[in-house]
Design a protein around this nucleic acid. Sequence first.
RNA 1: GGAGGGAUGGCAGAGCGGUUUAAUGCACCGGUCUUGAAAACCGGAGUGUCCUUAUGGGCACCGUGAGUUCGAAUCUCACUCCCUCCGCCA
Length: 421
Amino acid sequence: MLDIRTIREREADVRRALDLRGVGVDLDAVLALDRDRRSGLAEVEQLKNQRNVISKEIGALKKAGQDTAARQAEVRAMGDRIAELDRIVREAEEKLNNALLFMPNLPHPAVPPGHDAAQNRVVRQHGTPRSFDFEPKPHWELGEKLGLFDLERGARMSGAGFPLFTGRGARLERGLIQFMLDLHTTQHGYREIAPPFLCNAASMTGTGQLPKLAEDMYHVASDDLYLIPTAEVPVTNFYREEIIRDPLPVKLTAYSACFRREAGAAGRDTRGLIRVHQFDKVELVKFVEPETSDAELETLLADAEDVLQRLGLVYRILELCAGDLSFASSHTYDIELWAPAQKAWLEVSSCSNFGDFQARRAGIRYRNKDGKAAFVHTLNGSGVALPRLVVALLENGQRADGSIVLPEALHPYLGGLTVLD
RNA sequence: GGAGGGAUGGCAGAGCGGUUUAAUGCACCGGUCUUGAAAACCGGAGUGUCCUUAUGGGCACCGUGAGUUCGAAUCUCACUCCCUCCGCCA
């Protein structure tokens, strides 16, 4: 959420930033609500001050045994106007708050301009795609043949997009999760947590999934809970409505299953593991002092990259343009893995700096150098998402006979297994 | 699901209709003392918001929301969460 004072005092900057993102926001309406609220507040608070003063007098008069009927009538007469103004202020406040909850974050100055993914900037590429002396097979052929997953049975259990891993495929999922958690906790300084997979509306609002993106989530109506689309939600809400006492930066990592309805994506990437409704992911979240968040984004990105480097995968880094930023983000790097059979780059991680956008929504603060409570900056990144990682491992590791060579870093996590055949 | 208890500032813990600008203790910050530290003593300090800004002042906040009253942390109602016990259960 943006600070209404920022909008009020730097209206032109805010307009420019929102235009850059290509979103239509009625700033005039927002500013009008702000004016209504403040003028009502000025009047009602003055009346309340009068009331408090007179009530105190009444108390003193009663104690002295004097008659207070006239004073009481005077105050009673003010009650209606106070109630009316309270209502006006509350309504303006609710409308204003609602409007602010629907406004996206402002892009960081470093973000390249642009309307859509085509304008994202390629920052760098790590490694060069392997050349094949045979036609590489897509992961769904490799995986089904080797018995790593059974998408048909998964679809029968739940529906299309609910992958079912089997045998060594299930072991691979578990091994990858453990490999990544071990790496982040022992090498990168993150503390592991194992969070709930369902969260309430307040948490979803805190990180920015609600109210705008409700359609993208699974909702359990009977209990008004949402299946998390990412561990970002519970992990960031770890400190919701708190003043953080732990020394900053706080770095948390968590594994979770993630659930996404993929509304609006019908018909896209329907085959295989590239776009699914449920998947596993290891997430990285940081709570940092505002001055350090730019640098923390770079190290967050490096922590996610380390996973891919240790697995010997080819990837590239994109810096998202303003028009491609997610709702809550001010600055995002995507990491994409090369998938040879797809002949495509697949997003496996998105590392974002949210500035104080989520912290303001979720009420996450710290004590700054002056001892004042101030909003932290939050960051998160996938470290990394499993299905597309598996796609890349299978398609890149394949041999002509359909067997798959596994990277050395994984061997200890698969009971010494080095080849899937 | 049933019964009972509870929710107050970072923590502990008073207050149950008007000197509460929420006592007191611990923790915290500054100072005195000390070679230094500890102890002792003195002082400071909640959050949000609005007006004015050098300063200062107002309003709101004692789980949440309504209500009674001239006046609510305190009285009434509803709700939420936590704890204990019982039932069910991985």
